[in-house]
């Protein structure tokens, strides 16, 4: 079987359970107390990472890199919660992980970092990432990185990737109407932006964590700082729309009456 060189682009987003509040400063928008918010690996990037690790175990000699762009201190903390879940080599870039930074600026930084990965064989490259992020949520970054790296076989919102014995890859992409588009690419290189995939979140494996730490700490120490381009977008306002509704609480109606009222509402 062909070994793959899988590069996963993924970074941190605020723990989705936190209360988020936007602020608009001279540098552009951000989140209130952004550096204080507990963060997690972006959920779709997480799926990509777990799929990458799984694929790598099935294809001996494969390598997995996680290219992560975020504030160094936050990345360091993030690594402690994900490094036990999947085996990877970290490439860290010290920069803002704000969702308000232009995707193209992020994509260029990532593409440059990937280009500089020592030992990466682009003929074996599978560029993985999430189909969207829980921060910018634009769904464009991975494709841009792919294009910048000259990859012309790209797949978006992938739930399944089957690496076949002949080297080809069969891919299922989510399309409209809860359906899948099935395609086969002759083989690497390719870009795969994952939806949720099929794998559950792996358990924390302390030994995997220990192995990862050997590359994580040096990677963090030599993380290059990247200054994001904040000039391409001009934000006029950022706000949380108030959507509070007057809720009618129906406590004393019988089940029959409730069902009738709902049925009328559905039909009406």
């Amino acid at each position: 079987m062909t070994p793959f060189h899988i590069v996963v682009c993924g970074s941190l987003v605020p723990d989705p359970l936190q209360t988020l509040e936007p602020t608009l400063g001279p540098e552009g928008p951000g989140l209130k107390n952004e550096m204080m918010l507990p963060s997690v690996l972006d959920p779709w990037a997480g799926h990509a990472l777990y799929e990458a690790a799984s694929l790598a175990t099935k294809h001996p000699e494969s390598r997995v890199w996680l290219v992560s762009l975020g504030p160094k201190a936050r990345l360091q903390q993030l690594m402690m919660s994900i490094a036990q879940k999947a085996k990877f080599e970290l490439v860290a870039i010290d920069s803002s992980a704000s969702g308000f930074i232009d995707a193209q600026s992020v994509a260029r930084t990532l593409a440059t970092a990937i280009d500089e990965i020592d030992g990466l064989d682009k003929n074996r490259l599978l560029l993985f990432g999430g189909c969207a992020s829980a921060s910018r949520d634009a769904g464009v970054t991975v494709q841009m990185v792919g294009e910048l790296l000259g990859l012309t076989d790209q797949f978006l919102a992938v739930d399944e990737l089957e690496a076949r014995d002949d080297g080809s890859l069969r891919v299922l992409e989510r399309i409209e109407g809860g359906k899948y588009l099935a395609s086969t690419v002759r083989g690497a290189p390719a870009v795969v932006a994952w939806a949720t995939g099929k794998l559950p979140e792996p358990p924390n494996n302390p030994q995997v964590g220990m192995q990862n730490m050997r590359t994580i700490l040096p990677a963090l120490q030599k993380a290059k700082a990247a200054i994001p381009n904040r000039n391409s977008i001009h934000y006029q306002e950022v706000a949380i729309p108030q959507q509070k509704r007057e809720t009618r609480v129906v406590k004393d109606m019988s089940v029959d009456e409730i069902a009738r009222e709902i049925a009328d509402w559905i039909r009406g």
Binding site: V249, K251, M253, D256
Partner: peptide, 30 residues
């Protein structure tokens, strides 16, 4: 739970009832 965060201030109406019973009845009506 009448105070359920999913509904309070977010829904137009919250019916405090057992969904198993309500949906069973609804299905009859539908």
């Amino acid at each position: 739970d009448a105070n359920c965060g999913w509904a309070r201030g977010k829904a137009d109406v919250v019916y405090v009832a057992d969904a198993f019973e309500v949906v069973e009845k609804l299905n009859d009506l539908l």
